[in-house]
Structure formats: C-alpha cells, structure tokens
Nucleic acid binder design. Structure first.
Lengths: 334, 334
DNA sequence: GTGCCGAAGTCATACGTATGACCTCCGCGG
DNA sequence: CCGCGGAGGTCATACGTATGACTTCGGCAC
C-alpha cells in the first residue's frame, strides 16, 4: 500500500537498492561516468514505477533558483498583453522555465512589495516601471517596449517606422489635418508616439484618453467637434479607434468618407470592424524579451531588438470605401 | 557591507542578538506568549532594516505546501478566460495564494505530465478535463463550467435559464426557424447547450464550428444558405456571432432585419458590434471556483454554485433596428 | 606482490524555515 | 528552604535535493 505522501528520491533509492545520491545523479543526468548503465536503468525504472517526481521546493532551496519568471503587466484581459504572455511562456517552456503573471496595478489594487514567489527574473511592461524601484533586491529584468535608455535591457517596437508608414499612407490619401487620439498608457509610450507623429505632422492636434471604448468616444467627440475638424484620426490603440468610430457615426460622419480612422495593435476588434491599424507583434515581443532574459541569466549581454510593426490597411482608410457608403456593421458588401 | 546574497532569518537573528527560532516565531505571529513584546519589536525592526524576506522555497519545503494554485485553461488570449483568471487571482491574493496559468493544449502544444511547479490545488476548465486523468497524484481540483456529475466540485453557469431567456426573446420577436451555431469547445459544453436549446426549439438546425471568426463565417454560410433559412442564429460564442454577422452581410442579408444574431460571453467585441448576447460572468466564475478550492483545501465541502447569466439585448436582435437599415459599421444611427 | 588509478558508488552536508522538545531563570506558595 | 510553574527563550531536527569529499574494489603495470 503506497503511503499518501508522494515518493521521494529516498523512497526510490530504497526500492532500487541504491543510495539517494545515486538516484539524484541518475535523474539529473549530469554525471556521465559516475553510474553504470545497468544501475542507471534500474533507478529510472523504479522511479517510473513509483511515479516519482522531484519536489520542486526542495530543488529550489538546494539550487537557489526556481526557473520561474514573473511577467508584470497592467492587465491580462487585454488581448495584447495576453499575446505577450503566450510568446514569453512558449520560449520559457522551451527552456524549462515557467512563467507566472502578475497584473498590476490596474486589476489587483495591492501594494507591490515584490513577488511572493521566488523568481529568477522578471519581464515588465513600461507601465510597471515606476513601481519596480520599490523592490527589495534587484532581479534580472527585461523591459517590454519601454524607454531603451532606462538602464534595463529592452525590447521595442519600431514606432518611428510605423508612424512613417501610417502618415505616408494618410498623406497619399490626401489627408492633411490629422488628429491624434493618444492613449494614457504610460508616460514614455505617450511621448514616444507623440514625438514620432509630430516629427511628421507638426500641426497634429492631440487628445488623451484612457484605453476604453467610452473614453475613446469622448476624446474623439472633442477632436471631431473642432472647427478645423481633422480628416484623419490616428489612435494609439484599437480600442480607442472603436470609440472614435462610434463618435464619428454619432456626429453623422462617414468613415472613411468624412474621416479616416486608424488604430494600433491589430487585435481581433480591429479585424472585425475593418479598421486600418498598425500590427504590433505582441507575441514576438514576449518571446524576444524572454530570450533576452535568458541571456541575462546566463551572464550574456542581451540584444536590444527593435521589432518591425506592420501597417494593415483596411476599410477605415480605404479610398474606395469612401465611395460606397458603409451599409452595415461588419465587412465590406458582397 | 551587505553580502550579495539575500539576508536569511539567521542573519536577522544574529543582528538582533536572538536565535533563529525566535525570529521565525516573531515573524510568523503564531506564538503569542513565547516572545516578549520588547524582543518581538527588536526582531521586527531588524528584519525591516535588513530587508529580510522569507525564502519561499525553504518555507514551501518545510511546510509541504506552496500556497500556489494552477489555473488550466485552453488559452489566455480569449478575454473570457482572461477574466476568469482575474476573478480567481483576486480571491487567491486576498487569501495569500498566488495563481499561475497553464494554457493547454491549444497554445503550448506540450505533453501535460503534471505541473512543473509545486501546487496546492488546481482550477481547470472543462476543456482540460480529459487530460487531467493523466496526472500522477490527485490534486484538490475545482472544475470551471463542466459536467457537475463529473466527480470534482464544479462552478457552472445557468445555461438553462440563459437559453430560456434567449429563446423567449426571439420568440417574442416572431422568430420560429432558429439556427444554432455550436462551438467546438468541448463535448460537455456542446451537449449542455444543445440540449438546453432543443428542449425549447425542437426543430433547431445546428452547425458546429471552431471558435474563430472565419470558422463562424463558414458555418453560418451553410446555415443561411439553406432553403428553410433560419430567421435567427444562436451562436455559442461572440466570436462566432461576428463570423455569422459577416456571413449574413456576404449573402446580402440585413441584420437584424432578415436574420437576428446572438452570441455568448459578452466580450468587448459583442459590445462594439452591438450584438445581443448572453453575458457569462467570467470573473465571478473564477472567483467562485477559487473560493470553492479554498473550501476544499480547508477540508470543507465546497458548494456547487450555478451562476446566473444575463441576457443583454442589443441591435442585432432589435425589432426597431429592423426598420432602419444599418448604415455603418458601429452603433445605432444618430 | 605492491602501488596506483579509474570506475562506481556512498556519505555527509547545506540550502532556510518552522516547530516540538528542552532549558533557564524568577517569583511564589508551602 | 525547597519545589514548582510559567514566562521567555534556545536547541535540534526535519523537510527533499544536489553535490563535493570520501570509500571501495577490480585491474593492470612494474
């Protein structure tokens, strides 16, 4: 009768008639010449038979590391961050690491006095940047789309290039008065995008909004009610673009006939509503950041990649769609 | 000069001039009469000064538990599951537990031979049900919206009630031929919804689809191309409803004039596209499941709650909207 | 026959915490 | 003056693993 407590390496050793050290050496696979093939096989068989699994707590204590990485993002309900998680988790799993999520501070309004778990490293979005200074001990850290001069290694998007493509596209459609629906994400992101945009459209008019449909709606209403109403709205986030869409329609404006609208991220929402957007490769962001963190943990200096963003042109800026009045909620006619 | 290794309780003890046991007893707070107030304060001050944090690995090893719960969901990129996570994580945090996510098997196609982490319990969506049997040792488990007769404690949605509301709503609008766009989520969910629907609409016609816009589109095309074309489509998921919406428009059908469409979940997509849907309280699902798991861990028998679902009526079934032809992607005119 | 070396293991210990068992006073009742 | 009990601690140990130090033994060269 098996005890109700899980078998330990000591149990395996006893059952196989060897010492606990031997079990550990066999199963870790790190000691090529120390154990004969026959003994090794016997140990493996016994471990398998007893259903032995190493106790992670004991291993962590002994080794002083946990092979666990913490991902700090403001929210996991946003598809963008969920994709970041997927990308990072996949790379982590491939290297024998696990990834835990810490959503802060938007969802769980708790003080962040460091992770409760023992972690080996950390990936953090720029929104969490300020709070990280409160941590007790420095932890290997890679930042996600944050200020590259902030000290920690960073993975960024090519916002410059994206804005160049975006404004070029709008210019080619004849747009001159352009509005900027800026997202209150964090200071650096805001400044980065605003600067990249203003470098190309000096007289851009800007409104800020929290990332939600209703906030986007209200900010867009202000922009679109101006005397010199913009003919194109660049939104920092797809969610804001949806709000802007609503605002345009509330004002009786046709999209894209009267006003063109663009977003950022390319979440499913943008696809469903046929909104032109800048696709930010969130999953690659997570994956690259995790690779950088692995570099860091191995004593190497991680690269600081800049990931290309891709302009996805859809109906909300389509010149042809401007002719055919949109006649329904989704998709192009036919 | 502080060492580069984090301070241990032994360090605190040395600095405070007491024994390590005393430090442990003070900081755990479990030994009321064993330490004088003065000594206790001295220990707390010293710990604070040194920035002492208990080593989680050592504590886990000693106590034989980790205060970590694993949430097993097919994907975290779906807003529904992300909300489940938030609800569960909040309750977990309130009780000093952490929650780690394991997405399986859709996103990470790896064999699931039990969690790598040491966990105290598990929350699993019904999609992961089959695979759980492969686990080595039974772990306290609460299932999410799964077969209540499956053995493990379960938290469910009131699908019966939801279907009753939904069909009642459609009936009152005069719909008689109703189609069912069923989601290939998992066997139990499918059967549960199909049964609840057929109990009220015996002659419902059903098509199955994977959860994506394109699959929903194709399945809806099949349903809407029938000779006895349904006048209403009940979709098991908002994403499918979006696909159905596209299909309707591709066929030149007006929504809701020619065909009414409903979804499930009430994700932001449904709100943006003004789709009538059944709001499933995902966050409450996660929270309730975590509470049940805490019961289980404390030796109590958890309840098996059935959470009410709420019918959210929007434009895609609105009788008034049937009069005014939809004239744009988002929102009602004006 | 003796010395030596490598192969194949075992032994002992440390990681940091929590806790039952023990120990040492001091005050007090008899 | 002795015993006793409780307050206020300390001591020792166990949790399960990984690994450096040590042991044993057979084979082989000299």
């Amino acid at each position: 009768m098996p005890a109700d407590t899980p078998p330990t390496s000591k149990d395996v050793a006893a059952a196989a008639g060897v010492s606990q050290s031997t079990v550990s050496m066999v199963l870790s696979g790190k000691w090529p010449g120390r154990v004969s093939a026959r003994t090794a096989q016997k140990v493996r068989d016994t471990a398998e038979r007893l259903g032995y699994r190493p106790n992670p707590a004991a291993r962590n204590l002994r080794l002083g590391r946990t092979r666990t990485i913490m991902l700090v993002v403001p929210t996991i309900t946003a598809p963008f961050f969920a994709s970041v998680y997927i990308g990072a988790a996949r790379v982590a799993a491939e290297h024998g690491f696990s990834l835990v999520v810490f959503t802060w501070p938007l969802e769980l309004d708790m003080p962040f006095d460091g992770p409760q778990e023992a972690i080996d490293g950390m990936l953090a979005s720029s929104m969490a940047e300020a709070s990280l200074s409160g941590m007790r001990r420095p932890v290997p850290l890679v930042m996600l789309d944050s200020d590259p001069d902030g000290g920690a290694p960073t993975v960024n998007f090519d916002i410059e290039g994206a804005m160049e493509d975006l404004t070029g596209h709008l210019f080619s459609l004849g747009h001159r008065r352009i509005g900027h629906l800026a997202a209150d994400i964090d200071v650096w992101t805001f400044q980065c995008r605003a600067a990249a945009l203003e470098a190309r459209v000096p007289d851009v008019v800007t409104e800020r909004a929290a990332i939600s449909i209703t906030d986007g709606f209200e900010a867009a209403m202000r922009l679109l009610s101006r005397a010199d109403r913009p003919t194109a709205l660049i939104c920092d986030d797809d969610t804001l673009a949806v709000g802007a869409h609503k605002a345009a329609r509330a004002l009786g404006l046709d999209v894209p006939g009267d006003v063109a609208i663009t977003g950022f991220d390319d979440v499913v929402l943008a696809e469903a509503l046929e909104i032109t957007t800048v696709r930010l490769p969130a999953e690659r962001l997570g994956a690259q950041a995790m690779l950088g963190l692995l570099d860091l943990l191995n004593g190497r200096t991680p690269p600081r990649p800049v990931l290309p963003a891709e302009l996805v042109i859809r109906r909300s800026t389509s010149p042809s769609a401007a002719l055919t009045t949109g006649s329904g909620p989704v998709g192009q006619p036919g």
